[in-house]
Amino acid sequence: MSTIVVGYVPNALGEAAVAEAVEEARRRDAELVVINTTRADRLVNPAYADSEDVSKLEGILSAAGVPYSIRHSISEATAAEEVVDTAAELAADLIVIGLRHRTPVGKLIMGSTAQTILLSAPCNVLAVKLS
């Protein structure tokens, strides 16, 4: 059975990515691995899902009826490394991420998780845009 790795953040974009990933999983008959991690290096990290978000996510995934697992943890690695490493570890067929518009200055200051994943992914990457 093939595997699809999804980078999830608790917002509309993250949900769009998951929805798209569910479609792909059905099409490819694959298992979904949803990843949400934090480095826990700051007081507030809105990209990290709390338990409410996780149960909401579980609701969506079980309703979709695809096999899935959720990796929700604190990790030393950055979110991009975590997604890429997991994809490599599971020999995933596809990575699904959300892609949002970034200003050049924003990218300079904060870097871009999406860009890092795109450049170092071991497989194809599906970048989902929020319509």
Partner: peptide, 8 residues
């Protein structure tokens, strides 16, 4: 389904 929540 494995929910690997590590924040014990």
């Amino acid at each position: 389904m494995s929910t690997s929540v590590q924040n014990s």
